[in-house]
Design a protein around this nucleic acid. Sequence first.
RNA 1: GGCGCGGUGGCGGAGAGGCUACGCAGCGGAUUGCAAAUCCGUGAACACCGGUUCGAAUCCGGUCCGCGCCUCCA
Length: 463
Amino acid sequence: MKLHIHDTLTRSKTEFVPIDASDVRMYVCGPTVYDHAHIGNARPVVVFDVLSRLLRRLYSKVTYVRNITDVDDKINARAQESGEDIREITTRTTDIFHRDMAALGAMTPDVEPRATDHIVEMVRMIEDLIAKGNAYAEEGHALFSVPSMPGYGQLSKLDKRDIIAGARVDIAPYKRDPQDFVLWKPSNDRQPGWDSPWGRGRPGWHIECSAMSLVHLGESFDIHGGGLDLIFPHHENEIAQSKCAHGAHSFAKYWMHNGYLMSEGEKMSKSLGNFYTVHDLLEEYPGEAIRLALLKSHYRQPLDFTKDGLREAKTDLDRFYGGLRRHTGIDIGPADVPVEVLSALCDDLNTPAALSALHKCLSDLNTAQGKDLKDLKDLKSRLLAAGQLLGLLTQDPEDWFKWQPAGRADAGLSDAEINTLILARTEARSNRDFAASDRIRDTLAAQDVVLEDSASGTIWRRK
RNA sequence: GGCGCGGUGGCGGAGAGGCUACGCAGCGGAUUGCAAAUCCGUGAACACCGGUUCGAAUCCGGUCCGCGCCUCCA
């Protein structure tokens, strides 16, 4: 099946044709590790995780690179405030990021390069740009000369006048042109720095991604992804650096950007305090519910992330896992992903349409009572295969229903206590003592434990 | 000011010139000791004003509302 994606360069949906079908290469901008990832950081991780899963289904080999930015002035500022060592901040934050993203069901990228491991390549690239006349050194800085690149501004569709008119600060004296941007800047003794032809310093923001994509994917690769907010200046400048260094036909063939996030109807901002970190949300909700809440809208649409939406996503998953739990005894076999799911994803990653098809799979399974075993096995296998492609429905239903929030003040009833109460209730029911039976059910309900009676016994779940 | 995105039923959210998804919630029914779960059925929408068209939620123009970006520092 042919994959179509929306390319930011042309602002239109186009057929995806890989440069090399035997190795599809994708680069996505990863986090700057100075603080916990918020839900806005999680969106591109989840979106491009789905894309990488889809690509792996369509092509024999995929190389997915997502970097860690561990040198940045925001990190330096954090170290200044807290007194914590920069290395400690970046290591600790990276570990938490890994755990949080794993909880969202995001697979580890094939390569996760760190900026500080690629300083040599960055310096080499800057030297190359200077040698080619696309950059210059001035007062300990190295700067990219924007007028040296004829097509600058193609990704963001900004022209020179707009960029200068929009500049929010006075133009630094070491710039030859107001649009020029920093490739390398000098560091003082308290700032991290590396020796370079321009003195001890550190890289500018954009050069790292140009250098890391070069090392791990080559001069040309297929897809470059990230959030909408990175189009300008970050991606525009990456294009400038890489194309000037390696030729007009080099660098990313397609650009994909996910839409921005709002939170509870307002734009996310620290002053409003409506800033959900993934880490905090995971204290209250299963990671899979967060993932589903993100995938319920199309990746390019604006998304208003709310607790209500999260609760709804959890309810959706209760239904899916409920269906699976009812068929626990049915083994699964190899199954094709339903064509509706695959075609939805191949249409520019239309996850809402794919989820709609996933619900159809569930209905098919739920209405299959009385059908023979082979049908049930097929239906269950198809549902799970479809879920797998979306990174959903990957856990044991029992684990899903027994999950309880880590952030809860009182731990509630243990599994064993619940089972004991259910046993007592079953005894009461067999004596037709429904008053006692209902009392026990009310007790459990007060602890957010819901019972379901069936011919084969009573099962329970936490709400 | 410049560039760009969006406004769909009570809610979430696809689609996109005639076939009007899907989910949650609601309502009616089946089932159940009663529930829960499940199943069956069901009402309900395309921000506003013009235009194009046999036909517009979908295309065009305008209005209103919400949001993003406008380098290096923050």
